[in-house]
Design a protein around this nucleic acid. Sequence first.
DNA 1: AGAAGCGGCGCC
DNA 2: AAAGGGCGCCGCTTCT
Length: 547
Amino acid sequence: MLVALVPEADGAGRWQKLHDDGTPAGPAMAATSLASAVASLERAHKPRWIWADTSEVYPPLLAAGVRVDRCWDLHLTEALLLGADGRHREPKELAAAVARELNLPAPADVGPRKKDVELTLFGPDPVVLPGNTDELDALAMVFRAQQRNPALGLLIVAESASALVAAEMTFHGLPWREDVHNAILEEMLGPRTAPGVRPKVLQALADQIREAFGGKEINPDAPASIVRAFAREGIDVPSARRWVLKKIDHPAVEPLLEYKERARLWVAHGWTWLDAWVHDGRFRPDYVVGGVVSGRWASRGGAALQIPRLMRKAVLADDGWCLVAADASQLEPRILAALSGDQRLIEVCGDDDLYSALAEDSFKGERPRAKIAMLSAMYGGTSGEAGPLLAVLRKRFPQAVGYVEAAAQAGEQGRMVRTRLGRTSPSPSDAWRELTGGADDSGEVSSSSRQAARNWGRFTRNFVVQGSAADWTAALLGVLRNRLPANAHLVFFQHDEVLVHCPREDADAAIEAIAAAGREATRLLFGETSVRFPMNAVPVDCYADAK
DNA sequence: AGAAGCGGCGCC
DNA sequence: AAAGGGCGCCGCTTCT
C-alpha cells in the first residue's frame, strides 16, 4: 500500500491512500496529529510513504517517536530520473523547482532562482500544475510521472531508504564524549582559549618558527607567507604543502609541520566545533543523501565525513552499550570485479586481503605495487610507476581494466556513463564541449583540449566504480535498517563503513545483521555473483579501537 | 564589507 | 612517496 503525506503547521497534516499505480485509493484525510496518524497507519499496513522530501518530513515524526518502514522520496527520485535523462540539476535548484511544482514553500535557504531553470520538471512531457492544485493530488501526480523509468526502481527505493537512515542517524546522534574531546584538545593545544586566540602550544610553535627564520615575521597560517620565508633563505618551494616541506632541510620545517597538524585540529575540531556540534553527548550532523554526483553522501556542517582519526577516541558507547564498527573491505576493486565479470579478478576477490592476492597473482608478491596498479586503474593515475604497473594489470585482467577504460573513453568523448543501478554521470559543460570540440583551423588538437578530455575521462572512469560502490552501500543500508535488533541504531555512515550503537547483548545480532545485509546488497546488485564482499564487523567501546 | 577563489588538509 | 577520483571547511587573499 502507498500513502501520500503532506505535513502542515503545528504537527497537523493530510494523507491519502493510493493504489500501486498512484491513483487514489480513498479520500483525502486530515489529522490534527500527523505523527499519531502515521503511527497507526504504520502499525496497520506498513505502507510505502510518498512524500516530497524525507529530510523535511521525517525528522518531526522521529521526534514524536514514530519510525517508518519504507518511503518514496520525490525530490531524490526526481534528481535520479532527471540525471538519467541527461538533465542534472543542482540540488538547490531542484528543491526549489520541485517545491514550486508541489505548491510547497521553497526551502528557506534557496536564493534567487537562476533564469534558465526549467519550471516544468516531470517526465519527457512536462506537466504543469496549476497554482491551486491540491498538494496531495500533486504528490500523486508526481509519483505517477516518476514511474517513467522502471530501470531505476531499485536505485530509487535504495536512495529513499538511505534518506530514512540519514534522518535516523541525525536523530540518534553519534555518541560523543565532550570530556574526552576536551582532554585531547588540552593535550595537543594547551588550555582552552577564547575563539580566535591562539592556544599556548600553537603560539610556542609559531615563536619557534619565527626564530628559525631569524626572527623575521611569518604567518604560519598563510601558505604564501611560508613560501616567502623560505625564499628569503634561498630555498625555492612551489607551495607550502606538507609533503613539499618535508623534503626541505631547514630548522623551521619540523615546527611548521607540527604547527600545521595542531592548528588544523584547533580550527576544524577544536572548542568551537565542540560547542557548535556536540550536545547532550551526541554529535548530530546533517547528512546529504545523494549529495555527491557519484551517489555518495555528503554532509552539511560539522565536517561529519572528515572526523580525524585522533578524535575517534571521543566516540564512546554509552554504559552497557557498544559500537559495532563495520566496513566493507576493499569495496571498490570488488565492485569492479563484479561489474566487469573479470574471472581472474573475481578469483583474487576470494581472498580477504584482495591486494595481497593480487600481488601474489601478478606483482611478485609486492602488495604496495599491486595496490598502486589497482588504484591507478580506478582513478586514472598516470604518474610515476603507475603506467607500467597498469600495463601489467591490463595484461592479466583485460576485462576489468577494459571496463574502466571504456568508461574513461566515454567520458573523453562527452558521453554519459551509468552505475550498476543506473545513476548517471552529468554531461560535461558547454564550455567543455567547446574546448574539446575537435581540431582547430590548423588541424591541431590543443593540449588544453586533450587535457580537458582526459580530465573528464578520469571522472567518468572513477564514477562507474565509486558510484556503483555507493549503489551497493545504499542497498546495504536499506536492508540493514530493517534487520537490526530494535534497540540497535545506525549512528554513522561514511562511504563504506557503518557504526551501530546497541546494547552489548545485541552486538552479535547486529554483526549477523550486517553480514546478512552485505550478502543481500550483493545479490540485489549482481545476482548470483561469486565475487566476495567481506564485511569486517567488530564490537568496540570506542570508535578509535576499530580496525 | 562581503563574496569568491585559492591553498591546504581532514576523510573515503 | 605521491598520485589518480570524490567531498567539506577553514583562513587568507583578492576582487567587487
